[in-house]
Design a protein around this nucleic acid. Structure first.
Length: 460
RNA sequence: UCCUCAAUAGCUCAUCUGGUAGAGCAUCUGACUGUUAAUCAGAAGGUAGCUGGUUCGAAUCCAGCUUGAGGAGCCA
């Protein structure tokens, strides 16, 4: 046992005065080595390095190279800029493979984000990814915090299920059968679950059943889409937050989602200053995104634009005749016009009452029988981050809609039967967590804000 | 999946319309006790993504494939 105390660099920076002139232990890896004398140590706790002075060549039995992991015992002292550690004893944790490091993204240089993506296992060592992952972590924790404060119950909806009726894209089918054996025909009755099974595209249907018992519930986990979409805002595996609340109407979930977003961004601005400052600087230099922090401040101060689908169509057609027909989904071309010309204020736009033909079966119809009690919240640069609705409460209307859409009733009868518990109004939404992280970090590609991005042609 | 563009040293890029492959940084060797994107001296490093074609001759032109970037569709 050592009589000296170990501290990480983040703690040391925060508690300089307390630890000054004490002998401490630090552990980390060499980020820079200058003048045979100055070591910069990083330990991942912060992107800031701690300078270590080597005033004794006996320390250098083996050559110190960039990247080598060290334990240092030394005295924390002041220097003309800040603080540094005057080393008494250094231990190396093995040797590094210098050739490996030289050919990797750990080489001390700027690397493009697509280059970093080619070495996902090493990407965590970069300052950029250190900041992104910490903000992602913080948002994850704070979503749970916020919903817990509001007395929501976290429900673990299954990742493997058999209903794919949500209309939310292609599903991944899963099986234990040997599909490579051409002789045996695929027969799901012989499969482990004795039926077709897939990875979930949304936990919503199961979540609604939990809501009928618990009132305010949410699920937050990975969901899977098998669509062959190759864009900077789609993944095959992504994280979605889905709250579902009894007796909530459309206006209530608008309020909840806006408050949640503002809470999350406010918290990030307050608690992730170091990370946001780094990202602000990074985005200015490399990412064509100026003033990340101002952008976020803007989002928590201002009221969001709220506009009906009908009015949106009219406004778009006023800008450019016949650019969109009533009943069409709002595409990225239209989103650009909305954010650049119609509402150029860099704030989210809430569009409500979408036509039923572009929305799933469970959304409640308006009195006009053409539109639904639904919302999408669009963010500048990113697009849709939230989609939600009031749910259809009437057993007959729901069944009628499902029949018209020719959805297989068998697998979701249990869901339809929930309406036999009465016509309880309820609403919910899905929030694309990764897109939110993308917006808050200013990254223009969703593949750069998740540790292991899974998308067509790419699996770790 | 569709459209457009790109692929040259470990990285970022040059090589002007076909004629011997070039730089900066990183790496390696050495120097350096107040540096902080350290500096200085020297060294090493590439069959130009792959396959084929045109040509006396291809990094350069053509075709296919692979990978990446941007846009579209699907969506969160």
């Amino acid at each position: 046992m050592y009589k000296y105390k170990f501290y990480n660099i983040k703690y040391i920076n925060k508690n300089k005065k307390k630890i000054l002139n004490k002998i401490i232990i630090i552990k980390g890896w060499v980020k820079f080595f200058r003048n045979n004398y100055f070591l910069e140590i990083n330990d991942g706790s912060t992107i800031n390095n701690l300078q270590v002075i080597i005033n004794n060549k006996k320390f250098l039995k083996k050559k110190i190279r960039i990247g080598i992991p060290l334990k240092i015992i030394g005295k924390l002292i002041k220097n003309k800029n800040d603080i540094e550690v005057y080393a008494y004893k250094i231990k190396m944790y093995g040797n590094i493979d210098k050739e490996f490091i030289n050919k990797s993204i750990l080489q001390n240089k700027f690397h493009s984000r697509s280059k970093l993506r080619q070495q996902l296992n090493l990407r965590f060592r970069t300052n950029l990814f250190n900041c992104i992952i910490k903000i992602r972590h913080f948002l994850f924790i704070n979503i749970h915090n916020y919903l817990n404060l509001k007395e929501f119950i976290y429900i673990n909806t299954p990742i493997i299920n058999k209903n794919n009726a949500e209309g939310a894209g292609e599903v991944f089918k899963i099986t234990t059968l040997n599909l490579l054996d051409k002789k045996s025909k695929f027969n799901c009755k012989k499969d482990l679950f004795k039926c077709k099974a897939n990875l979930t595209v949304s936990g919503q249907l199961e979540l609604e059943s939990a809501m009928y018992g618990l009132g305010k519930v949410y699920t937050f986990g990975p969901v899977f889409r098998a669509d062959n979409s190759n864009t900077k805002k789609h993944l095959s595996e992504f994280w979605m937050l889905e709250p579902e609340i009894m007796f909530y109407k459309l206006k209530d979930i608008i309020k909840l989602s806006v408050n949640l977003i503002k809470y999350l961004i406010k918290g990030t601005l307050k608690n992730c200053k170091e990370e946001l400052n780094y990202l602000d600087e990074y985005n200015k230099r490399y990412n064509n995104c100026k003033n990340l922090i101002n952008r976020l401040k803007n989002i928590i101060k201002k009221k969001y634009i709220k506009i009906s689908y009908n009015k949106t169509i009219k406004l778009l057609n006023n800008i450019k005749r016949n650019i969109i027909n009533w009943g069409d989904d709002i595409g990225s071309e239209h989103e650009k016009i909305l954010f650049n010309i119609v509402f150029p204020y860099e704030i989210p736009i809430i569009i409500y009452n979408y036509p039923k033909k572009i929305k799933p079966f469970y959304m409640k119809l308006n009195k006009d029988k053409k539109t639904t009690k639904s919302i999408d919240i669009l963010f500048p640069y990113i697009g849709e981050i939230i989609g939600g609705s009031e749910r259809e409460t009437s057993y007959n209307k729901l069944l009628d809609r499902i029949k018209k859409l020719k959805i297989n009733i068998k697998n979701i009868m249990w869901y339809i039967n929930l309406r036999k518990l009465g016509e309880i109004p309820h609403s919910g939404f899905g929030l694309g967590f990764d897109r939110l992280v993308q917006y808050i970090t200013g990254m223009n590609n969703i593949r750069d804000i998740i540790p292991y991005p899974i998308y067509p042609g790419h699996i770790f």
